Simulated scan of single mutants.
Amino acid sequence: MADNTVASVLAGLRRFPDVEAPNLQAWDATDKLLLETASELLTPESRIAVIGDRYGALTLGALAGYGVRDVKVHQDLITGERALRNNAAGLGIDAGFEQLPLGAALFDDADVVLLQLPRTLAELEEAADAVARYAAPDTVLLAGGRIKHMSLGMNSVLQRYFNDVQPQLARQKSRVLIARDAKPVTGPPPFPVADSNSELDLTVCARGAVFAGTKLDIGTRFLLRYVPDMPSVPHVVDLGCGTGILAAMYARIHPESNVTATDQSAAAVDSARATAEANGLAGQITVLQDDAMDSLPDGSAGLILLNPPFHLGASVHAGAGIKMFRAAGRVLAPGGELWTVYNSHLQYLPALERFVGPTRVAGRNAKFTVAVSTPRAA
């Protein structure tokens, strides 16, 4: 009965407001395997903490399939948070879960933690530290992932925080690691970290889930060459800001401008805020968690800086970039400019022309293209 209910829940899930396409699914085999593995531990009295529930499969599967009445969930992406609420409403589940940051409140009274394994060891370490630091010592962690994305390094990270880590048999190309008996944690949390970038003379701060950590990714490095050539305008947006390097460097070169650094990731927003503060730029940079500038008014930015992702989860997909181009076309003021750096093989120029307006190539190297788009006259 529970399996049928879970299957019904999974079948009803959507990714919206994240990008949707026929080849993009709102759940994967790991979600199903984690729920099946957890079923041996769950009762209606169980209190579950969930980390990394992309669109609500784990949270809603536990509530509907196993009668659990108390689930606390942390999702890094604002699109995931909204999708969970949308899916809950669509399934008629109006209670039983609470969305929280990665911190002590998430693990209050939890006896089981479900974790969709992240892609990076840094993000896994931040999650494992939080479980060991804040959950009760007898709390059981079930960490699951697709085998092709798992590594022995993940076992090693968990073994630093738990005395007992047991890999389970693989099923449907997924595997669950069961971690028990958390080790005592002392000292401050390992994240955020702060490193001095001598190339930029900038302190960069990063939480575990942020792309490239404190390093300068090569696309951003190429776009930074053009910051001195960019116009000085009252309001600038660093769209998909990550650790906030672009926002900080523009703000430093153009001290008369106000910069909004925005990202859908809570970890990125925390990192960008810390980067601004560490470099004395907090008064000039406003940091905002948002989905493709949804909360910014039409025509409100004279300049938008963009280094768009070309992955949606584990899939290479242009949808994320297209969504950002559409948003830029709306938020740019008349005469404003969108400066985009992208992998040249993606051939984004037609999309920029279509969704923003006239576009020229400002620069190109062996790997990247920098394009400048201006909004089409109404």
Rank of each mutant, 00 (worst) to 15 (best):
D164W: 04
T139V: 09
E123W: 00
L177G: 11
V316R: 03
V372P: 03
L216A: 14
R180N: 01
D270F: 02
A130I: 11
Y342P: 00
N155A: 06
E256C: 04
Y55E: 00
P190C: 12
T262M: 12
V176P: 13
Y134Q: 05
K173E: 11
A266R: 01
L121Q: 08
S265M: 06
A314W: 02
N4D: 14
E20Y: 07
F211L: 05
L224G: 03
A251N: 04
W339E: 02
H311G: 03
D53S: 14
L312E: 06
I93F: 11
S373N: 02
D201C: 13
A83R: 05
S295N: 11
V233D: 09
V193G: 01
E125R: 15
A105Y: 01
L141P: 11
N197M: 11
L114Q: 08
G12F: 12
V112W: 08
K215G: 05
E36C: 10
Q75N: 09
L124Y: 06
A272W: 07
A130Y: 03
E98W: 00
S271C: 02
R221M: 07
L303P: 09
G208T: 12
M293S: 05
Y55K: 00
A276F: 06
S39R: 05
R364M: 08
L84A: 12
V370D: 03
G240N: 13
A274K: 01
P231L: 15
H317S: 03
W27C: 07
V9S: 04
F16I: 03
E126M: 08
E81V: 15
D298Q: 07
T186L: 03
L142V: 11
K72C: 13
A261P: 11
I245K: 00
G335F: 14
P234D: 14
W339K: 01
P118L: 10
S373L: 03
V68P: 10
A182S: 15
G219P: 07
L224F: 02
I147G: 02
A21W: 13
N258M: 06
T214Q: 05
G302L: 10
A333Q: 08
V372F: 04
L332R: 05
G103Y: 02
I93H: 12
S156G: 03
A135V: 11
A128V: 14
T139K: 02
V227K: 03
A136G: 01
V6L: 14
T243W: 01
V73I: 01
L106Y: 07
G153W: 04
P309L: 06
I304K: 10
A318Y: 01
